[in-house]
């Protein structure tokens, strides 16, 4: 609060003090006093009035300056009322009480939403869990009846159900995972086996190279991420998948290369945006813009890097997805 701002608020008070000062000045002038006293005495009156405002200005200025500082530095601004001190002047106290009431209402609201989000997440998990039994039953029926078409449709259902589960979990991933040491080969081969029917039906040929390196991660999450990447490769016209590991000084990279249509240069930075489908999405249809968004979100939560590379113009040489695993056990890094 600048002095100017403060004085503007005291306009009436100052005006009221100016009137008697002017009256005195006029009187002194008419009485034939010299210019000295004519200016000095009313000036003294005005100065006294101004000085009487100083302590109030000083207190308020200090308080509001601090308030502004706190707001600027505070990460969660709705917690302002919890942090700020109670002022010692009346109008400030009204402000303080109001702030506290508003802050409390906000916190209650947030708590309510947080609770309902957790509630919903729990419901989704339960639901996914429940729906797996009928899917498993239907799948067995399909297997026994050797109905490949039904099995393929069931595989799609499973894919979407899985996506829903991981979407629900993605907000609180850090609570839900278990880091273990696992080789890249184990990660890749479990994904390939679990999706064998899907890949074989699409006549995808698979090559693996240099996957002996051990990484520390949650296999289930990475399997989900790989599944999304493979699904995209197949969706966008790939005939061959190539998995390759590479060890760097502080990290291990897993490359998934395909020979599909690739990602147009103008889209490559946005493939992980939620709801982004791009040129390819429109051409091939059935793109939800969710898979890669979720992959990136999960990678962040797991402390993994995720990068896309697609050489050449659209329609040429496929896509390379790189997943980067930190080599140290992530526990001693501050990514929680």
């Amino acid at each position: 609060m600048s002095a100017g701002e403060f004085l503007r608020g005291r306009f009436f008070f100052l005006g009221l003090n100016l009137l008697p000062a002017a009256y005195f000045a006029l009187l002194l002038h008419l009485l034939g006093a010299g210019p000295g006293p004519t200016i000095f005495l009313p000036g003294l009156l005005l100065a006294l009035a101004l000085i009487s405002l100083v302590p109030e200005y000083w207190g308020k200025n200090r308080y509001y300056r601090e308030l502004r500082n706190i707001v600027a530095q505070l990460d969660k601004k709705h917690l302002l009322a919890e942090v700020v001190e109670r002022p010692d002047f009346g109008e400030g106290q009204i402000l303080y009480e109001t702030l506290r009431a508003a802050g409390k209402a906000m916190n209650d609201e947030i708590a309510r939403y947080r609770l309902s989000a957790a509630d919903y997440r729990e419901y989704i998990e339960l639901w996914v869990h429940e729906i797996k039994t009928p899917i498993a039953a239907a799948r067995l029926v399909g297997e026994n009846a050797r109905n490949a078409a039904a099995l393929a449709e069931l595989a799609k259902i499973e894919f979407f159900v899985e996506q829903a589960l991981f979407y629900a979990r993605s907000e609180t991933a850090e609570k839900d995972y278990l880091i273990r040491s696992v080789t890249l080969a184990e990660l890749v081969s479990s994904v390939l086996k679990n999706n064998a029917r899907f890949l074989i039906a699409h006549k995808i040929s698979v090559r693996l190279d240099a996957l002996e390196t051990v990484v520390f991660t949650d296999g289930k999450w990475v399997a989900f991420i790989l599944r999304q990447i493979i699904d995209n490769s197949v969706k966008y016209g790939c005939r061959a998948l190539f998995f390759e590991g590479r060890r760097h000084e502080n990290s291990v990279s897993l490359f998934v290369r395909d020979d599909g249509v690739g990602i147009p240069a103008q889209d490559i930075g946005r493939v992980c945006d939620k709801g982004f489908t791009g040129d390819n999405g429109r051409r091939f249809g059935r793109s939800t813009g969710l898979g890669l968004y979720l992959c990136q979100k999960l990678c962040r939560k797991l402390g993994l890097g995720l990068a896309f590379e697609s050489p050449g113009p659209a329609g040429s040489m496929g896509t390379t997805v790189e997943i980067v695993f930190p080599l140290k056990e992530p526990l001693d890094e501050n990514f929680y």
């Binding site: 797996k132 039994t133 899917i135 498993a136 799948r139 067995l140 297997e143 069931l154 499973e158 086996k193 679990n194 064998a196 029917r197």
Partner: peptide, 8 residues
């Protein structure tokens, strides 16, 4: 894990 792959 359900729904299982019968081969597995």
């Amino acid at each position: 894990t359900k729904p299982y792959n019968t081969e597995i």
